[in-house]
């Protein structure tokens, strides 16, 4: 991407401009905070974020650790991919699972998606951030994903309880980010704020960024629940009497916990096919995530409580 543009002075293209903006944000974090951390969710946005972080600090290694909050219900392919990336790119990988949730065997089937997410993701994240005393947590959220995200700052302030106050955000002018914190407070930082889903895919395409194979269509064992295709990734998935997984050609537009992530029927087995399919598609990407449709304004509520 970041090409040497030769002798003619020129305006940067849209993707070049986004890349530079994100790199500038990542460097600002490294220069301004004592203990930054980067959230690593293993999805395509995380893959782009990881790529940008490598670029931002090259030839240095990424000067902060990557944190993966493991709910224990992630797709197996995600975990394998994560470990391979950590080895290949030599970043510090920290993983955390909520020990209380683990002890009580909190899972999406018996406890409902809302309670499960609250304990295994939101509370787990707070635990991990507190334990690491991180003062800045970098996330891959984009403003085009969801309405409440469209209003969040790039440097988004959190109080000592990790809560977001949407009515009291710091004005963010030019590229002048106010990175100052009082003791106990922290910052969430979103370098991909101005990227769209299409930008992410075209960037992955032009940079050859590795992503988890689950994004590509393949025959996978699925069951259909409330109109959503759920992949049976391991034997923990309870099946109703008479319910049997069937092989379908599916892929995922977004990755998370397999019992909560809907697959779509698709034949798109290459990046180019994914991008073509996306251009023709008429549904927004978070639709495949069950947690957002639990209640109106649910993402905003989760964010106020500390969810990413």
């Amino acid at each position: 991407m970041g090409q040497d543009i030769g002798q003619t002075p020129t305006q940067l293209s849209h993707l070049h401009a986004l890349e530079s903006e994100s790199i500038e944000i990542l460097r600002e974090v490294a220069a301004s905070f004592d203990r930054p951390v980067m959230m690593y969710s293993i999805g395509k946005d995380s893959s782009v974020l990881l790529h940008l972080a490598r670029k931002a600090f090259f030839p240095s290694r990424i000067p902060f650790p990557l944190l993966h909050v493991n709910t224990t219900w992630k797709f197996r392919e995600m975990i394998a991919f994560r470990d391979r990336m950590a080895q290949e790119y030599e970043f510090d990988l920290i993983t955390h699972t909520n020990p209380d949730g683990l002890r009580d065997n909190i899972n999406p089937f018996d406890h409902g998606s809302s309670r499960y997410t609250d304990i295994m993701k939101t509370a787990a994240l707070r635990q991990a951030l507190d334990a690491g005393k991180y003062d800045a947590a970098i996330g891959g959220a984009r403003r085009d994903e969801e309405k409440s995200r469209a209003k969040e700052r790039i440097f988004s302030h959190r109080n000592a309880q990790h809560a977001w106050d949407p009515k009291n955000q710091r004005p963010e002018l030019w590229r002048l980010f106010n990175t100052r914190l009082n003791p106990g407070e922290s910052m969430r930082v979103f370098p991909l704020s101005n990227w769209t889903e299409l930008d992410i895919w075209t960037y992955i395409y032009s940079e050859g960024i590795p992503i988890v194979p689950l994004y590509f269509a393949r025959h996978r064992p699925v069951v259909e629940r409330q109109g959503t295709l759920i992949m049976v990734d391991d034997e923990r998935m309870p099946l109703a009497p008479g319910e049997a997984p069937r092989e379908e050609m599916v892929r995922f537009r977004t990755l998370g916990c397999y019992p909560l992530t809907g697959a779509i029927r698709s034949d798109a087995a290459t990046l180019a096919e994914i991008i073509m399919e996306m251009q023709a598609s008429r549904t927004s990407e978070r639709q495949g995530r069950l947690i957002d449709s639990d209640q109106a304004g649910s993402m905003e509520k989760k964010k106020q409580e500390g969810y990413f």
Binding site: D4, P9, Q11, L12, E19, E24
Partner: peptide, 10 residues
């Protein structure tokens, strides 16, 4: 390495 960098490049 680049030979030159212009406004906007990181």
């Amino acid at each position: 390495d680049f030979e030159r960098a212009v406004a906007g490049q990181a």
